[in-house]
Simulated assay, not measured.
Amino acid sequence: MRRPPFDPELEAVLALVNDQIKTITPEMIPVLRAAGNQAEAVNDMLQAAGVARRDITIPGHEGAPLKATLYARADRAGTGPGIYQLHGGGMVMGDATTGVSHFLPWIVEHNAVVVAPEYRLAPEFPDPYPIEDCYAGLVWTAENAVGLGIDPDRLLITGASAGGGLAAGTALLARDRDGPRLIGQLLIYPMLDDRDATVSTQQYDGVGLWTRESNLTGWNALLGKRRGTDAVSPYAAPARATDFSALPPAYIDCGSAEVFRDEDVAYATALWHSGVQAELHIWPGGFHGFDILAPHTAIARAMTTARNAWVARVFSD
Protein backbone atom coordinates (compact mmCIF):
# COMPACT_ATOMS: atom_id res chain seq x y z
CA MET A 1 0.00 0.00 0.00
CA ARG A 2 1.27 3.47 -0.85
CA ARG A 3 1.92 5.71 2.15
CA PRO A 4 3.11 9.23 2.90
CA PRO A 5 6.93 9.22 3.05
CA PHE A 6 8.93 10.01 6.13
CA ASP A 7 10.41 13.47 6.50
CA PRO A 8 13.96 13.27 5.03
CA GLU A 9 15.66 14.23 8.31
CA LEU A 10 13.57 11.70 10.19
CA GLU A 11 14.17 8.98 7.61
CA ALA A 12 17.90 9.43 8.15
CA VAL A 13 17.39 8.96 11.89
CA LEU A 14 15.33 5.82 11.31
CA ALA A 15 18.08 4.41 9.11
CA LEU A 16 20.57 4.85 11.96
CA VAL A 17 18.41 3.06 14.53
CA ASN A 18 16.65 0.59 12.26
CA ASP A 19 18.48 -2.42 13.68
CA GLN A 20 17.37 -1.45 17.20
CA ILE A 21 13.69 -1.07 16.34
CA LYS A 22 11.80 -4.25 17.07
CA THR A 23 8.16 -5.04 16.49
CA ILE A 24 6.69 -5.70 19.91
CA THR A 25 5.24 -9.14 20.51
CA PRO A 26 3.80 -10.47 23.80
CA GLU A 27 6.93 -12.40 24.73
CA MET A 28 9.03 -9.24 24.43
CA ILE A 29 7.10 -7.28 27.07
CA PRO A 30 9.12 -8.45 30.13
CA VAL A 31 12.40 -7.77 28.32
CA LEU A 32 11.34 -4.28 27.27
CA ARG A 33 10.20 -3.45 30.78
CA ALA A 34 13.54 -4.53 32.21
CA ALA A 35 15.41 -2.44 29.65
CA GLY A 36 13.20 0.62 29.96
CA ASN A 37 14.60 2.24 33.10
CA GLN A 38 16.22 5.56 32.22
CA ALA A 39 16.51 6.86 35.79
CA GLU A 40 20.05 8.20 35.52
CA ALA A 41 19.40 10.10 32.29
CA VAL A 42 16.14 11.49 33.67
CA ASN A 43 17.81 12.66 36.86
CA ASP A 44 20.42 14.48 34.79
CA MET A 45 17.67 16.20 32.80
CA LEU A 46 15.86 17.24 35.96
CA GLN A 47 18.99 18.61 37.57
CA ALA A 48 19.89 20.61 34.47
CA ALA A 49 16.39 22.11 34.38
CA GLY A 50 16.29 22.89 38.10
CA VAL A 51 13.40 20.50 38.68
CA ALA A 52 12.98 18.26 41.73
CA ARG A 53 11.03 15.01 41.99
CA ARG A 54 9.41 13.22 44.89
CA ASP A 55 7.91 9.72 44.87
CA ILE A 56 4.67 9.21 46.77
CA THR A 57 1.90 6.62 47.07
CA ILE A 58 -1.65 7.45 46.03
CA PRO A 59 -4.85 5.38 45.87
CA GLY A 60 -5.71 3.68 42.60
CA HIS A 61 -8.69 1.64 41.50
CA GLU A 62 -10.51 0.12 44.49
CA GLY A 63 -8.00 1.81 46.79
CA ALA A 64 -4.96 -0.15 45.60
CA PRO A 65 -1.69 1.68 46.34
CA LEU A 66 -0.06 3.24 43.30
CA LYS A 67 3.36 4.80 43.02
CA ALA A 68 3.29 8.35 41.69
CA THR A 69 5.93 10.99 41.14
CA LEU A 70 5.58 14.72 41.80
CA TYR A 71 7.69 17.09 39.72
CA ALA A 72 8.13 20.79 40.48
CA ARG A 73 10.77 23.49 40.27
CA ALA A 74 13.38 23.04 42.96
CA ASP A 75 12.99 26.71 43.91
CA ARG A 76 9.21 26.65 43.68
CA ALA A 77 7.13 29.04 45.76
CA GLY A 78 3.44 29.88 45.72
CA THR A 79 0.68 28.25 43.71
CA GLY A 80 0.69 27.34 40.04
CA PRO A 81 -1.12 25.17 37.51
CA GLY A 82 -1.34 21.41 37.84
CA ILE A 83 -0.54 18.83 35.18
CA TYR A 84 -1.82 15.29 35.49
CA GLN A 85 0.58 13.27 33.34
CA LEU A 86 -0.13 9.74 32.07
CA HIS A 87 2.86 7.94 30.60
CA GLY A 88 3.04 6.09 27.31
CA GLY A 89 4.21 2.56 26.63
CA GLY A 90 1.52 0.81 24.61
CA MET A 91 -0.46 -0.09 27.76
CA VAL A 92 2.21 -2.66 28.62
CA MET A 93 5.29 -0.71 29.76
CA GLY A 94 6.56 2.69 30.85
CA ASP A 95 6.70 4.49 34.18
CA ALA A 96 6.43 7.95 35.72
CA THR A 97 9.66 9.08 34.06
CA THR A 98 8.51 8.17 30.54
CA GLY A 99 8.06 11.30 28.42
CA VAL A 100 9.65 13.65 30.94
CA SER A 101 11.05 15.85 28.15
CA HIS A 102 7.49 16.75 27.15
CA PHE A 103 6.50 18.31 30.45
CA LEU A 104 9.79 19.71 31.78
CA PRO A 105 9.38 23.05 29.96
CA TRP A 106 5.87 23.48 31.40
CA ILE A 107 7.21 23.07 34.93
CA VAL A 108 10.01 25.56 34.41
CA GLU A 109 8.04 28.18 32.46
CA HIS A 110 4.71 28.04 34.29
CA ASN A 111 5.66 27.02 37.85
CA ALA A 112 3.51 23.93 37.34
CA VAL A 113 3.32 20.83 39.51
CA VAL A 114 3.19 17.53 37.62
CA VAL A 115 1.54 14.47 39.15
CA ALA A 116 2.56 11.33 37.24
CA PRO A 117 0.94 8.07 38.44
CA GLU A 118 2.16 4.61 37.57
CA TYR A 119 -1.10 2.97 36.58
CA ARG A 120 -1.09 -0.81 36.54
CA LEU A 121 -0.07 -2.35 33.24
CA ALA A 122 -1.58 -4.96 30.94
CA PRO A 123 -1.63 -7.88 30.44
CA GLU A 124 -1.31 -8.58 34.18
CA PHE A 125 -3.89 -5.86 34.82
CA PRO A 126 -6.21 -5.64 31.80
CA ASP A 127 -9.02 -3.15 31.29
CA PRO A 128 -10.53 -1.58 33.38
CA TYR A 129 -7.53 -1.42 35.76
CA PRO A 130 -5.38 1.08 33.84
CA ILE A 131 -8.15 3.60 33.12
CA GLU A 132 -9.68 3.26 36.58
CA ASP A 133 -6.25 3.74 38.17
CA CYS A 134 -5.82 6.89 36.08
CA TYR A 135 -9.19 8.26 37.09
CA ALA A 136 -8.62 7.51 40.78
CA GLY A 137 -5.30 9.34 40.59
CA LEU A 138 -6.96 12.35 38.98
CA VAL A 139 -9.56 12.49 41.76
CA TRP A 140 -6.77 12.32 44.36
CA THR A 141 -4.86 15.10 42.60
CA ALA A 142 -7.90 17.38 42.53
CA GLU A 143 -8.77 16.66 46.16
CA ASN A 144 -5.20 17.41 47.26
CA ALA A 145 -4.54 20.29 44.88
CA VAL A 146 -4.16 23.02 47.48
CA GLY A 147 -1.71 20.99 49.55
CA LEU A 148 0.31 20.28 46.42
CA GLY A 149 0.51 23.96 45.51
CA ILE A 150 -1.84 23.50 42.55
CA ASP A 151 -4.48 26.02 41.59
CA PRO A 152 -7.57 23.74 41.46
CA ASP A 153 -9.01 25.86 38.66
CA ARG A 154 -5.99 25.22 36.44
CA LEU A 155 -5.67 21.45 36.12
CA LEU A 156 -4.58 20.04 32.77
CA ILE A 157 -4.49 16.36 31.77
CA THR A 158 -1.91 15.08 29.31
CA GLY A 159 -0.31 11.95 27.97
CA ALA A 160 1.53 10.60 24.95
CA SER A 161 0.71 7.50 22.92
CA ALA A 162 -1.03 5.05 25.30
CA GLY A 163 -0.94 7.84 27.87
CA GLY A 164 -2.76 10.08 25.41
CA GLY A 165 -5.50 7.50 25.02
CA LEU A 166 -5.75 7.13 28.79
CA ALA A 167 -5.87 10.92 29.16
CA ALA A 168 -8.77 11.10 26.70
CA GLY A 169 -10.55 8.24 28.49
CA THR A 170 -9.98 9.84 31.88
CA ALA A 171 -11.42 13.13 30.60
CA LEU A 172 -14.52 11.21 29.47
CA LEU A 173 -14.82 9.59 32.90
CA ALA A 174 -14.40 12.92 34.66
CA ARG A 175 -17.28 14.34 32.62
CA ASP A 176 -19.56 11.33 33.06
CA ARG A 177 -18.93 10.96 36.80
CA ASP A 178 -19.10 14.68 37.50
CA GLY A 179 -15.46 14.46 38.53
CA PRO A 180 -12.61 16.97 38.54
CA ARG A 181 -12.89 19.91 36.18
CA LEU A 182 -10.12 20.04 33.58
CA ILE A 183 -9.05 23.14 31.68
CA GLY A 184 -7.70 21.09 28.80
CA GLN A 185 -6.62 17.71 27.47
CA LEU A 186 -3.26 17.56 25.72
CA LEU A 187 -3.17 14.36 23.66
CA ILE A 188 0.22 13.65 22.13
CA TYR A 189 -0.08 11.14 19.25
CA PRO A 190 -2.75 9.34 21.30
CA MET A 191 -3.63 5.64 21.07
CA LEU A 192 -7.43 5.77 20.78
CA ASP A 193 -8.88 2.96 18.67
CA ASP A 194 -8.59 -0.80 19.19
CA ARG A 195 -10.36 -1.80 15.97
CA ASP A 196 -7.37 -1.76 13.57
CA ALA A 197 -9.56 -0.51 10.73
CA THR A 198 -7.98 2.74 9.55
CA VAL A 199 -5.92 3.29 6.43
CA SER A 200 -2.95 4.58 8.42
CA THR A 201 -2.69 1.40 10.49
CA GLN A 202 -2.40 -0.56 7.24
CA GLN A 203 0.09 1.88 5.71
CA TYR A 204 2.52 1.53 8.63
CA ASP A 205 2.46 -2.22 8.98
CA GLY A 206 6.06 -3.24 9.64
CA VAL A 207 7.57 0.20 9.13
CA GLY A 208 8.33 3.02 11.57
CA LEU A 209 8.87 3.16 15.30
CA TRP A 210 5.45 1.84 16.38
CA THR A 211 4.01 -0.59 13.87
CA ARG A 212 0.60 -2.11 13.35
CA GLU A 213 1.69 -5.38 14.98
CA SER A 214 3.10 -3.58 18.01
CA ASN A 215 -0.16 -1.68 18.31
CA LEU A 216 -2.19 -4.87 18.21
CA THR A 217 0.07 -6.37 20.88
CA GLY A 218 -0.79 -3.48 23.17
CA TRP A 219 -4.53 -3.57 22.53
CA ASN A 220 -4.71 -7.36 22.84
CA ALA A 221 -2.89 -7.18 26.16
CA LEU A 222 -5.36 -4.60 27.43
CA LEU A 223 -8.60 -6.04 26.05
CA GLY A 224 -7.98 -9.71 25.28
CA LYS A 225 -10.73 -11.33 23.23
CA ARG A 226 -12.88 -8.20 23.55
CA ARG A 227 -10.60 -6.24 21.21
CA GLY A 228 -12.47 -5.22 18.09
CA THR A 229 -15.86 -6.29 19.44
CA ASP A 230 -18.83 -4.30 20.72
CA ALA A 231 -17.82 -5.14 24.30
CA VAL A 232 -15.11 -2.44 24.45
CA SER A 233 -15.71 0.57 26.67
CA PRO A 234 -15.18 4.09 25.27
CA TYR A 235 -13.12 4.84 28.37
CA ALA A 236 -10.64 2.13 27.34
CA ALA A 237 -10.75 3.06 23.64
CA PRO A 238 -12.01 6.67 23.40
CA ALA A 239 -12.58 6.42 19.65
CA ARG A 240 -15.57 4.26 20.62
CA ALA A 241 -17.30 7.21 22.33
CA THR A 242 -20.53 8.49 20.78
CA ASP A 243 -20.97 11.60 22.92
CA PHE A 244 -18.10 14.11 22.83
CA SER A 245 -20.02 17.07 24.22
CA ALA A 246 -18.95 19.04 27.31
CA LEU A 247 -15.36 17.83 27.17
CA PRO A 248 -12.44 20.17 27.90
CA PRO A 249 -10.63 21.85 25.01
CA ALA A 250 -8.15 19.54 23.33
CA TYR A 251 -4.79 19.74 21.64
CA ILE A 252 -3.94 16.73 19.47
CA ASP A 253 -0.76 16.22 17.51
CA CYS A 254 0.54 13.34 15.46
CA GLY A 255 2.77 12.53 12.50
CA SER A 256 1.37 11.90 9.03
CA ALA A 257 3.56 8.80 8.73
CA GLU A 258 2.32 6.69 11.63
CA VAL A 259 -0.37 4.25 12.70
CA PHE A 260 -2.33 6.71 14.87
CA ARG A 261 -2.80 9.42 12.24
CA ASP A 262 -6.32 8.61 11.08
CA GLU A 263 -7.82 7.84 14.49
CA ASP A 264 -6.38 11.08 15.87
CA VAL A 265 -7.85 13.12 13.01
CA ALA A 266 -11.20 11.38 13.53
CA TYR A 267 -11.12 12.18 17.25
CA ALA A 268 -10.49 15.87 16.65
CA THR A 269 -13.29 15.89 14.08
CA ALA A 270 -15.69 14.25 16.56
CA LEU A 271 -14.82 16.91 19.15
CA TRP A 272 -15.52 19.70 16.63
CA HIS A 273 -18.82 18.09 15.62
CA SER A 274 -19.86 18.18 19.29
CA GLY A 275 -18.94 21.83 19.71
CA VAL A 276 -15.70 21.19 21.62
CA GLN A 277 -12.70 23.34 20.80
CA ALA A 278 -9.76 21.31 19.49
CA GLU A 279 -6.45 22.19 17.92
CA LEU A 280 -5.06 19.51 15.61
CA HIS A 281 -1.56 19.28 14.13
CA ILE A 282 -0.53 16.53 11.73
CA TRP A 283 3.20 16.87 11.10
CA PRO A 284 4.22 15.85 7.57
CA GLY A 285 6.44 12.82 7.45
CA GLY A 286 6.52 12.34 11.21
CA PHE A 287 6.79 8.82 12.61
CA HIS A 288 5.52 7.88 16.06
CA GLY A 289 7.48 9.58 18.82
CA PHE A 290 9.79 11.46 16.46
CA ASP A 291 9.98 14.44 18.81
CA ILE A 292 11.55 12.18 21.45
CA LEU A 293 13.85 10.18 19.18
CA ALA A 294 14.95 13.08 16.97
CA PRO A 295 14.41 16.34 18.91
CA HIS A 296 17.14 18.10 16.89
CA THR A 297 15.24 17.91 13.60
CA ALA A 298 13.39 20.92 12.20
CA ILE A 299 10.01 19.20 12.28
CA ALA A 300 10.46 18.05 15.89
CA ARG A 301 11.38 21.57 16.97
CA ALA A 302 8.28 22.92 15.22
CA MET A 303 6.09 20.30 16.88
CA THR A 304 7.43 21.12 20.33
CA THR A 305 7.09 24.87 19.80
CA ALA A 306 3.44 24.58 18.73
CA ARG A 307 2.58 22.28 21.64
CA ASN A 308 4.29 24.48 24.22
CA ALA A 309 2.51 27.56 22.84
CA TRP A 310 -0.86 25.88 23.37
CA VAL A 311 0.03 25.03 26.97
CA ALA A 312 1.02 28.65 27.58
CA ARG A 313 -2.31 29.88 26.19
CA VAL A 314 -4.34 27.44 28.27
CA PHE A 315 -2.54 28.39 31.48
CA SER A 316 -2.91 32.10 30.77
CA ASP A 317 -6.68 32.03 30.12
Score class of each variant (00 low, 15 high):
Gln185Ala: 12
Leu104Val: 03
Ile183Gly: 09
His110Lys: 07
Val146Met: 12
Gly179Ile: 11
Tyr84Pro: 13
Ile157Asp: 10
Tyr135Ile: 06
Ala136Asp: 11
Leu121Phe: 01
Ala122Gln: 03
Asp95Asn: 12
Leu187Pro: 09
Gly149Tyr: 15
Gly164Arg: 12
Ala136Leu: 11
Leu186Pro: 06
Leu166Ser: 04
Asp133Ile: 05
Ile83Gln: 11
Pro190Tyr: 01
Phe125Ile: 01
Gly137Glu: 02
Glu143Trp: 08
Asp196His: 07
Met191Val: 08
Trp140Phe: 14
Thr198Phe: 10
Ala112Met: 00
Tyr84Leu: 09
Pro180Gln: 00
Ala142Ile: 07
Ala160Trp: 15
Asp178Val: 15
Tyr84Gly: 09
Gly149Asn: 15
Gln185Lys: 05
Val139Cys: 14
Leu156Val: 15
Asn111His: 02
Ser101Ala: 15
Thr98Met: 05
Leu173Pro: 03
Ala96Gln: 10
Ala112Thr: 00
Ala122Thr: 02
Gly137Val: 02
Met91Lys: 10
Asp127Ser: 13
Thr97Tyr: 13
Gly137Gln: 02
Asp194Ile: 05
Gly159Cys: 04
Asp95Glu: 00
Gly163His: 08
Asp153Arg: 14
Leu166Tyr: 04
Glu124Lys: 05
Gly90Pro: 04
Tyr84Ala: 13
Glu132Ile: 08
Pro130Leu: 11
Pro81Thr: 10
Gly89Lys: 07
Gln185Tyr: 14
Phe125Asp: 05
Gly82Ile: 03
Leu172Ala: 12
Gly149Ile: 14
Gly179Val: 11
Gly90Ala: 09
Ala171Gly: 14
His110Gln: 03
Phe103Arg: 04
Val139Asp: 09
Leu187Gly: 14
Pro180Lys: 03
Ala145Trp: 13
Ala142Val: 12
Arg177Gly: 13
Asn144Arg: 15
Ser161Tyr: 04
Leu156Gln: 13
Met91Thr: 08
Asp133Ser: 05
His102Arg: 08
Leu187Gln: 08
Asp95Gln: 00
Ala168Thr: 10
Phe103Pro: 06
Val199Gly: 10
Ala168Gly: 08
Glu118Gly: 00
Ile131Asn: 00
Ala168Pro: 14
Pro180Arg: 02
Leu86Ser: 06
Leu166Phe: 10
Asp95Ala: 03
Asp178Gln: 15
Ile107Asp: 01
Arg195Gly: 04
Ile83Pro: 09
Leu187Phe: 07
Ile188Trp: 06
Asp193Lys: 00
Leu86Asp: 06
Tyr129Val: 12
Val108Glu: 10
Arg195Thr: 12
Thr79Cys: 12
Arg177Asp: 00
Leu172Lys: 02
Leu186Arg: 07
Leu104Tyr: 07
Ala145Pro: 09
Asp151Ser: 13
Ile183Val: 12
Val100Arg: 04
Thr98Trp: 01
Ala174Ile: 03
Trp140Tyr: 09
Val92Gln: 04
Gly90Asn: 00
Asn144His: 14
Val146Tyr: 09
Ala112Cys: 01
Gly149Gln: 13
Val115Lys: 01
Ala171Cys: 14
Ala112Trp: 03
Ala116Glu: 00
Pro130Gly: 10
Gly149Asp: 13
Ser101Arg: 13
Trp106Pro: 06
Phe103Ala: 08
Pro105Arg: 07
Glu109Arg: 10
Thr158Asn: 05
His110Ile: 02
Gly137Tyr: 10
Arg177Asn: 11
Gly159Gln: 06
Phe125Trp: 02
Thr79Trp: 14
Arg177Ala: 12
